[in-house]
Structure formats: structure tokens, C-alpha cells
């Protein structure tokens, strides 16, 4: 039981970060019907941006009180979200809007995004460094165990990550279902030409969708970078995983992305270790991705539009 809880917590932690990134994919897909392949670099930019701010504020981060810790965490989230939003905004202006104006074929967007992804990741590498092990100042003492129900070890960091992610997701859900901007996004996703006729400024809506998605990914970048390490190439794997999660949940569907992300994170941790089998792993951890992808393929074969189906409008 304790083992199971440990792995579940690990899975939920990773999964909530996947979910935050996946939301960006899904939002953009909703309004543009395009996979934003450069989204992973938005995530990476969030980590670098928040690091610069946090590092500036707390230095090495020794001896902070509880309230200060909370403040710094909020600061990191905000800084990450802003950096992510800025990069996403510029990305949309440079790599997407000109193509939209020209009525470019769908794959041209894909290649443009891939190019932007290469570019951003290497530019950050050149500007900051290309090492794989940049770390945030450990102001939270991230290894600290908070409490131990059933002998499991629940850590402060995990709680912080999960709570932040859940709050952000609730915020997004309210934003999309309850505000004028959210209505615009949903209308654009449903039928862009009609929405335009109804007075929705499509360009601005798309731009803001990128900003919202970028902010979420940037915040996830902060959480991820703080929990593990950050680097200029950190975005690639979480990006692919989050893309898979978004597809799994039903791309274009906000709640689908959340569920898909959490599911993928938990599955990744439970598959190779399978605590319920007891003791030794039943399958090596090196096979995790294989099992995950096989499951994904199977799910898609039987539910071709993901778990919750596609529509942005319907679920929110």
C-alpha cells in the first residue's frame, strides 16, 4: 500500500505537469486545428525565465521562512507564466500568423513550428548554456517529507506541484467556460468564420489563446525545473509526452487534456513498477515508453478521437 501510494504521488506529480503542458496543445488545437510543435520550447522558456527571476530574488535560497517560501513559489509561477506567455505570443506572431495570412497548407505550420522549436531551444542554449543540469536554488527543501500516511512518503514539493497545477487548471476551466474571452475561444474553436461574423476578433482570440497556453506551459516549466533540472533541451520529451496526453484525452478538449496528462503520468510510474504485483518489477523501466505507446495506440484504435472526444466547446 505504501509503495502504491508513493508511486501514485510520483505519477500525479509528473502527470499534473504533463496536463499543464497538454492544455497548451489542446487550446491551440481547438482554435487552429494545428499541433503547436514549438510548445515544448515555451515550456523550456518558462523554466529559464522563472529561474532568472527566482535566482535574482533569493540567491541560493538558504533559510527562508514559510511565508517567504510561498511568496517565492508564487513569484516563480508568475515569472514562468509570463516568460512562457511572451514566448508564445512572439511565436504566434512570427511562426503562425504570416502563414495564416497566406493560407498556407497545414503541414507548413507544422514545419514552421518545428523550425521555431529548433531555433528557440538552441538559442536558449547559446544564450544561457547547453548543460543538462541547471538547478533552481532549493529554497523549499524539496526532499523534505511532509507526512507519511500508511508509510508512504508524501513530500512538500509534490503537494506544492499538485496544488499549483490544480489551481491553474481550475482557473483555466473558469476562464474558458465563464468569461467573454473564453466564449470567444470556444466560438472560434467551434466555427471560426461564423464566430468572426458574430463579432469575435479571430486574430486576437488566437493570439490570446497562445498566451494562455504559453502561460500554463511556462508555469509548468517552473514547476518541472524546480522539481528536477532544466536545460535548453528539457522541452522535447515532456512536449512529446504532453502531446500524447492531449491526444489521449481527445485533442481540443480541455478536460480531456487534464485527464490524459494525469493518466499518462500515473501510468508511466505504475507500469514498470507495478507495486500491486509485489516486489520486483514485472517489466523493466526501459520498456515504459513502449508500454505507454502501445496503450496509447490501442486506446486510439478503439476510441479514435481519444477518451473524451474532440470538441472544445462540448466539454467546457
Amino acid at each position: 500500500m505504501s509503495e502504491f501510494l508513493n508511486f501514485l504521488m510520483l505519477g500525479l506529480t509528473r502527470g499534473s505537469m504533463y496536463a499543464l503542458i497538454a492544455l497548451g496543445y489542446t487550446l491551440v488545437y481547438g482554435v487552429l486545428q494545428l499541433i503547436n510543435f514549438a510548445h515544448s520550447e515555451v515550456f523550456m522558456a518558462g523554466a529559464f525565465g522563472s529561474f532568472l527571476v527566482v535566482h535574482l530574488v533569493v540567491g541560493e535560497g538558504e533559510g527562508l521562512g514559510g511565508f517567504e517560501q510561498l511568496l517565492v513559489t508564487l513569484l516563480g509561477l508568475v515569472a514562468g507564466a509570463i516568460s512562457g506567455a511572451v514566448v508564445a505570443f512572439v511565436l504566434e506572431r512570427v511562426a503562425y500568423r504570416p502563414l495564416r495570412r497566406r493560407g498556407a497548407p497545414k503541414l507548413a505550420f507544422l514545419i514552421s513550428a518545428i523550425g521555431a522549436s529548433f531555433f528557440l531551444s538552441q538559442l536558449f542554449g547559446k544564450l544561457f548554456n547547453r548543460l543538462g543540469n541547471n538547478q533552481f536554488p532549493d529554497y523549499l527543501h524539496k526532499g523534505e517529507v511532509l507526512w507519511t500516511p500508511f508509510g508512504a512518503r508524501i513530500k512538500l514539493l509534490q503537494v506544492v506541484i499538485i496544488i499549483s497545477a490544480v489551481l491553474l487548471m481550475i482557473f483555466l476551466d473558469r476562464l474558458v467556460s465563464g468569461t467573454k474571452l473564453g466564449r470567444g475561444i470556444r466560438a472560434t474553436a467551434e466555427d471560426a468564420p461564423t464566430a468572426a461574423l458574430m463579432g469575435v476578433d479571430i486574430d486576437r482570440t488566437i493570439s490570446r489563446t497562445f498566451i494562455i497556453g504559453g502561460a500554463l506551459a511556462g508555469a509548468a516549466g517552473f514547476l518541472f525545473g524546480y522539481a528536477f533540472v532544466f536545460s535548453n533541451t528539457m522541452g522535447f520529451i515532456p512536449g512529446i509526452k504532453a502531446f500524447a496526453a492531449a491526444v489521449l484525452g481527445g485533442i481540443g478538449n480541455i478536460r480531456g487534456a487534464m485527464i490524459g496528462g494525469l493518466l499518462l503520468g500515473v501510468a508511466e510510474n505504475l507500469i514498470p513498477t507495478a507495486p500491486w504485483v509485489g516486489g520486483d518489477a514485472w517489466i523493466g523501466q526501459e520498456w515504459t515508453d513502449v508500454v505507454a505507446f502501445v496503450l496509447l495506440i490501442l486506446i486510439l484504435v478503439f476510441r479514435p478521437t481519444g477518451i473524451l472526444g474532440e470538441r472544445l466547446g462540448r466539454a467546457a
Binding site: 505519477g11 522539481a227 528536477f228 522535447f236 523493466g284 526501459e286
Partner: peptide, 17 residues
């Protein structure tokens, strides 16, 4: 034996295992 891809950043589950 456990194999963990070098690009992994999250060693939580490996360590728990």
C-alpha cells in the same frame, strides 16, 4: 537491472523502486 534513458530528468520512481 533497471534501464533509465539518459534523457530522463525524473528519477523519483526509479529511486523508489
Amino acid at each position: 537491472r533497471i534501464g533509465v534513458d539518459a534523457k530522463t530528468t525524473d528519477y523519483g520512481s526509479t529511486a523508489t523502486q
